[in-house]
């Protein structure tokens, strides 16, 4: 019982911790797409494979962390909304299982991008 009661806060605290991390990580990620910071002139030129390959090499770990944190924050938010949509024990369990499933699958895909990145 006590365990359950703590949970509501814990989930929410993680939501805020990921939010704080996201401000920095996403800020960095958005700046990666501003062309003038990299001496190119258009948005499209920041998306060429050579350019992106370099960014993966330089700060792949930051992008991976961003993907994980954003996934957790987003899926957790959706989970909260789904709990609001409908109530019930079985329903809650299904949602929780789905949450972890989707999280793990996509987190693994994101990790593969960095680990198995083919050479340019």
């Amino acid at each position: 019982m006590i365990e359950m009661e703590n949970k509501a806060s814990n989930i929410q605290i993680w939501q805020y911790i990921t939010a704080i991390l996201l401000i920095f990580l996403l800020g960095y990620h958005l700046l990666q797409r501003v062309p003038w910071l990299f001496n190119v002139s258009t948005f499209d030129q920041t998306l060429t494979s050579a350019f992106v390959y370099n960014q993966y090499k330089e700060a792949g770990w930051a992008l991976l962390l961003l993907a994980w944190v954003a996934l957790f924050h987003g899926l957790n938010g959706v989970r909260g909304m789904l709990f609001e949509l409908h109530q019930g024990k079985t329903y809650n369990t299904i949602i929780n299982v789905l949450f972890w499933l989707v999280f793990i699958v996509f987190a693994a895909i994101a990790a593969l991008t960095i680990v198995k990145l083919p050479a340019y």
Binding site: I2, M4, E5, N6, A8, I11, Q12, F83, E84, N92
Partner: peptide, 12 residues
């Protein structure tokens, strides 16, 4: 705190 820190408590 234990009462409001539940699934249907203040974090909703």
């Amino acid at each position: 705190f234990a009462i409001v820190d539940s699934e249907h408590g203040c974090h909703r």
